[in-house]
């Protein structure tokens, strides 16, 4: 049953995806009026799906990679909606919707019954670790999306032509604020998540845990995250330079995700 709800959520998220594609192809925004309620409903079904599967298993669990994808997508949508409420703009969705769609879609087609292999996954600490890290990711994703939009808007303003994009995108300063606040929002979660993970790992594997590729990459990502905030604080980097850094952070985030297959500490699935 959780899978059914998740698939319904995917269908709603598809509206978001379609909206993004239509915007990028400059076909106007036919879906502008329905996209908010659609992804909102998607989020509700997504939530129902997560709750039900948790209830079925008896606790929150991250044993399946598909389940984790679903959680990550959920957190991304939650952060998106927080910023939507604050700034009344769906524009970062252009980047967020496709990511969320791909994550939930992958999660919805391949979900197998959850298999618990590691006793570690039963602990409450792991739940704290994963939720914190994923919230941090969600902030980073949103900031990355907004920084791309910043570039688009900046270019449109510099080109001095009244393009449809220029009228659709929120003002440059609003995009900039979303960019920055999303980073600020995500950073403490990411930091606490890493601390929680480190505590867990030291407890379980000893100090050597640090040589795991996934963990190493995670710390690099954290450093880039820190760098993003620092350049922003110290010299007000925004626009092109900030977007490059954010893209860099995003690529590392992707490789952290991919590093699962090489990671000792994060391989939980029975294959």
């Amino acid at each position: 049953m959780p899978l059914v709800w998740l698939r319904v959520a995917v269908a709603f998220y598809a509206v978001g995806l379609l909206y993004s594609l239509l915007l990028l192809s400059k076909r106007g925004n036919l879906l502008a009026k329905v996209v908010e309620p659609a992804v909102g409903l998607g989020l509700i079904f997504h939530f129902v799906s997560l709750v039900e599967s948790t209830v079925q298993v008896g606790r929150l669990s991250f044993a399946s990679i598909h389940y984790s994808e679903s959680i990550l997508a959920f957190m991304a949508m939650v952060v998106f909606f927080i910023f939507f409420v604050l700034y009344r703009t769906v524009s970062p969705g252009v980047v967020i919707f496709p990511i969320v769609f791909v994550l939930t879609f992958a999660s919805a087609i391949g979900q197998k019954p959850v298999t618990l292999t590691s006793p570690l996954l039963r602990s409450g600490w792991i739940f704290v670790h994963v939720v914190l890290i994923f919230t941090g990711y969600a902030g980073l994703f949103l900031s990355f999306g907004a920084s791309l939009l910043y570039l688009v808007q900046e270019r449109a303003l510099k080109a001095k032509r009244a393009t449809p994009l220029l009228t659709w995108l929120p003002p440059l300063q609003t995009i900039d604020e979303i960019c920055y606040r999303a980073l600020l929002f995500g950073f403490p979660f990411m930091t606490l998540g890493l601390i929680a993970g480190s505590v867990l790992a030291i407890d379980k594997y000893g100090p050597l845990f640090f040589y795991d590729p996934k963990i190493l990459l995670s710390f690099i990502m954290w450093a880039v995250y820190m760098l993003l905030l620092y350049t922003r604080w110290s010299s007000g980097w925004r626009g092109r330079r900030a977007a490059f850094l954010a893209t860099f952070a995003f690529v590392i985030a992707l490789s952290v995700w991919a590093a699962n297959s090489f990671s000792r500490t994060h391989r939980f699935i029975v294959s």
Binding site: Q153, L157, P170, P171, L172, T174
Partner: peptide, 9 residues
């Protein structure tokens, strides 16, 4: 209008 596109409010 342009100033609003840059600074919002």
């Amino acid at each position: 209008d342009l100033a609003k596109k840059i600074f919002g409010n």
